[in-house]
Write a protein that binds this DNA or RNA. Structure first.
Lengths: 128, 128
DNA sequence: TCCATGAGTTACGAATTGGTACCTACTGGT
DNA sequence: ACCAGTAGGTACCAATTCGTAACTCATGGA
């Protein structure tokens, strides 16, 4: 057994959600999935414009990875110029619920934190 | 606006789940949360032994991050030798459902893939 | 006396990552 | 003739990341 394994290795036998998280965790992945979900199937350039700031290289790489994981489908039309349309597969859509829940929790926490900060500020003001 | 921003920047205004995913995505994070969830509150060394392969440095860093995000509580007893016990906070437990769902999906996909491979193999054999 | 334990911290170093800039091929517009 | 757009691919480069090894402090045991 290789004692020296970077975290890239697949020592994940014990945790099935790890695989999915490794997938979702890519830097831009959530933006891409979010956009494909909310704006429907899109072409490369469209997606690139919407996921503001991403480089073509990253977008390509992420899309390839997502495609490899069967979360995204790539439809290539060999017209001139070529049209490449990306869309969520059924598997991609299976994540909708979970991602929705994560978004919900994220927003709730944000709101809670904001409320807490507001309460703190009010307390400070009252103490003066 | 800084055109040059690494992905570490907080350009995440548009995506509330991004924050959580960034949190969960740390290399060992899921193992840690999973262990804290299934084995209950644990001390540093215990956790380190269970999350096989993690270095003390990483574990510390991950735990600090999780603590900062209020997902994990750190109870320090200044005995000699010191006892530090980690446990999930309420927020940490709020992720149980989502993580559970992710694990479920992950396992389902794994099973589906395995079934698909088996079917392919059977087909190949039948074709001979 | 020396070692191990508990819970780390620090320094160093190699590998990965992700951005930038430049390249393709083809066509339509000016 | 030249530029822009489409969908990338490639080379290079700087920064970040993560692992390893060594150190801490205090005590109890062989």
């Amino acid at each position: 057994m290789d004692a020296k394994q970077t975290h890239t290795g697949k020592e994940s036998a014990s945790c099935p959600m790890d695989f999915i998280l490794r997938m979702l965790m890519g830097p831009w992945t959530t933006y891409i999935l979010y956009n494909l979900k909310t704006h429907g199937p899109q072409r490369f350039g469209e997606l690139k414009r919407r996921v503001a700031g991403i480089s073509a290289k990253m977008l390509t790489e992420r899309l390839r990875t997502l495609e490899g994981a069967s979360l995204v489908r790539r439809d290539y039309e060999a017209t001139i110029p070529p049209k490449v349309t990306y869309s969520l597969t059924q598997r991609g859509h299976e994540l909708d619920d979970v991602l929705g829940k994560l978004a919900e929790i994220g927003m709730r926490w944000e709101a809670e934190d904001a409320a807490l900060r507001a309460a703190r500020a009010a307390e400070l003001k009252a103490a003066e």
